[in-house]
Design a protein around this nucleic acid. Structure first.
Lengths: 136, 136
DNA sequence: GGCATTTGTAACTATAATAGTTACGGATAG
DNA sequence: CTATCCGTAACTATTATAGTTACAAATGCC
């Protein structure tokens, strides 16, 4: 979507085809991103989705938070036995460690924008294909 | 196990009871930790498991690596469509980002030992209970 | 030796999460 | 008015994880 920014919005079917999945799966994710104001979508004919911000202003952390249900870094739902000394406090300790870990993850993601991803995709600038030789 | 180091080995049933699960589940994990040389186990009567190293010499990274099947930070098994420019290279880019992320996670885990976890569990040193008032 | 106990492991079932599918109401462009 | 496309619900399929049962092999103890 970042690559086709400015032009027409992408349809869920196009995105789905590019990742070999079903349009509904894509729409579900796009819908979450829309709630986070990262993309905008339009219904109806000639509808589709596009980025709501310039690629340089969307970080992977934004995307991660929009999509994460909050249970990636979480403790086992079944609590330990509180008769045990360790069990009494271990959840607090592990919770603290999980926060350290997820903080580190978020630190990495916050530094990478969609634009950076595009740059990594293509060492050379985004098309305007200087020689028109490298794709069909 | 770190808390009962020096004394008798812990049986899988005891550990299982303390986390409200089945002994076999514990044995499976203990077995992986054993293959990583972090714990030793003994079969037979009076058997059980104990740490193979002092708690200060085992990091959470050691444990993580012993247990991780390698698929925590990994790409979707179904590859994208290579007809698409993005699909052609995105896996390489995402792979690089995943490495950055897991590197950050490992950095955090490498700094925390089992001994540190014990310290965080109990602000005061490991028992020898000075007043014998705080547990039953 | 014989017995009780415990690990290691296989085989199976149960439960839950994720992905994928079908269907349809509502919005929109032409 | 019609064709198209999103948002969403409801359902099925697939997979991963957890839990269970069972048993051979190892070990300590009498």
């Amino acid at each position: 979507m970042a690559r086709s920014r400015g032009s027409e919005p992408l349809k869920s079917g196009q995105v789905a085809a590019s990742v070999n999945t079903n349009p509904v799966v894509i729409r579900r994710i796009l819908c979450e991103l829309g709630r986070a104001r990262l993309v905008t979508s339009q219904t109806g004919a000639a509808g589709g989705s596009k980025l709501a911000l310039p690629p340089g202003e969307i970080t992977l952390l934004d995307v991660y938070r929009a999509v994460d249900a909050g249970d990636i870094f979480s403790l086992h739902r079944q609590p330990p036995n509180n008769q045990c000394f360790v069990g009494m406090n271990i959840e607090t300790v592990l919770g603290g460690i999980l926060e350290e870990v997820s903080g580190a993850v978020e630190g990495v993601l916050a530094k990478i924008t969609i634009e950076n991803v595009l740059e990594r995709l293509q060492p050379c600038p985004p098309a305007r294909s200087r020689k028109r030789r490298e794709r069909v």
